[in-house]
Amino acid sequence: MTVAMPDAETDHETARRVLRRRQALAPWLLMLPALLVVVVFFGLPMLLMVRMSFNLHIDQRLYVPGFTFDHYVNLFSNPLFTNAMWTTVQLSIMASLATVFIGYVFAMLVWLKPPRWRLLMIGLALCPLLISEIAIIFGWWMFFPKNGLLSYALLQSGLISDKISLMYTEFAAFVGLIYVTLPFCFFILLSIFDGLDKRLLEASADLGASPLTTFREVLLPLTWTGILVAFSQSFIWTIGTYATPSALGPDTLWTMGFLIQEQMLGKHNWPMASAFATVLIIGVACVMFITRSMQSKRTSFHV
């Protein structure tokens, strides 16, 4: 008997260790298919792209295997490239801020409206996702020109005395970027609002707080995580998009997406295009790290 007891305790402890090990491995086993997809279709191409950025570009060949930092030096020393990077970052930040503001107001309105209005507004927000970006661009081509809908509406309302054209302007590119990214921000923020109890607004009003105070002291802290996530999502989309600013903006609006396309297809300089893309990925990663560090741990579970 005295010998069997330690053996039973040892077997029980071994079984508990095996169970804990299985419980620790279970989440990784469930994520394994998704991790394989990410590594194969995203991780390996990204590594190949980074390696491509260090290759040589001689004559008209796409690339020559080698190792050089010249592409990165040219990237940060050429005023044309640095101005394009600054223009891209500036346009992306402005468009992201405007998108988050509009999406926040729209999401709060949907959250406060009765259920019979909710489905209609959500369907309205889904409209830009039901068509391609090219179709959206064609729609703006009918809206911004001199004989477009916007010019006609302003002329009929008496706000202007002559037709105007906003086509091929930075404002047109700005509006196009907002329209494309707004649905993503809206649904992120709506998910945050749906996690809140509307009775918090009633409690704040019963305590004598004004609507502005309620927003500043109650809603804003509880939705801060959603604002950061929506901003990062919009920034990632706008900083890497190529079609919308190229089709709606002026010829002088050179973004990083445009330069990557030009280096890749126009000048057949694959290493330089890869260097642009690598810097773009690093910039996006930095923005993600900053926004993640600004999130509140207390409310991060809403996302």
Rank of each mutant, 00 (worst) to 15 (best):
G249F: 08
L196T: 06
A230N: 15
N269E: 14
E217G: 00
T244G: 03
E262K: 08
I227E: 09
T225H: 12
V284D: 01
D197S: 13
A277T: 14
K267F: 10
W254P: 01
G266M: 13
F289N: 10
G240L: 06
T291D: 02
G266Y: 08
T255V: 07
C286Y: 08
A247Q: 09
Q233M: 15
T278I: 05
D206K: 00
F193H: 10
L259Y: 09
T214Y: 04
T291I: 05
P250S: 08
L207P: 00
Q295E: 14
W254L: 03
D206Y: 00
D251L: 01
W237D: 13
G249V: 07
F235E: 04
L222G: 01
A247E: 08
F289L: 11
T252P: 06
G226Q: 10
I281L: 15
A205N: 03
T291L: 06
R216H: 09
L212P: 00
A285Y: 02
V287I: 12
A247M: 14
V279Q: 01
W270M: 04
I239A: 03
F231G: 14
S232H: 02
Q261H: 08
L253F: 05
E202Q: 13
Q295T: 11
K267T: 07
G240Q: 05
T238L: 09
F289E: 08
W270D: 02
A277W: 03
W270E: 10
T278F: 08
E262Q: 11
N269W: 01
E262N: 05
E217N: 11
E202I: 02
G195V: 07
A285S: 12
L212N: 07
M288N: 10
S210P: 14
G283D: 02
S234M: 07
L259T: 03
L222Y: 02
T214E: 11
T278L: 04
L259V: 01
K267G: 01
M256R: 02
E217S: 13
V279W: 03
A205K: 14
K267R: 05
L259M: 07
Q295M: 13
F215T: 00
S293F: 05
A273R: 02
S274K: 07
T238C: 14
I236N: 13
F258N: 02
D197W: 09
C286W: 08
W224N: 12
D194W: 04
L212Y: 11
F231M: 15
I239L: 02
G208L: 05
P211H: 05
I290M: 12
A243R: 05
F231W: 10
A230L: 14
W237C: 14
T223D: 09
E217D: 15
S274R: 07
L212A: 15
V229Y: 00
I281M: 15
T244M: 10
I236V: 11
T278Y: 06
R292F: 12
L212S: 07
C286K: 04
T241Y: 06
L265G: 01
C286P: 04
I227S: 12
T291C: 11
A203G: 15
R216Y: 08
D194H: 08
P271W: 13
A205Y: 09
L220V: 10
W254F: 04
L201Q: 04
A209M: 13
P271R: 12
I227T: 14
L253Y: 01
F193E: 02
S274P: 12
I227R: 14
K267A: 07
Q263R: 05
V284E: 13
G240K: 04
A277N: 12
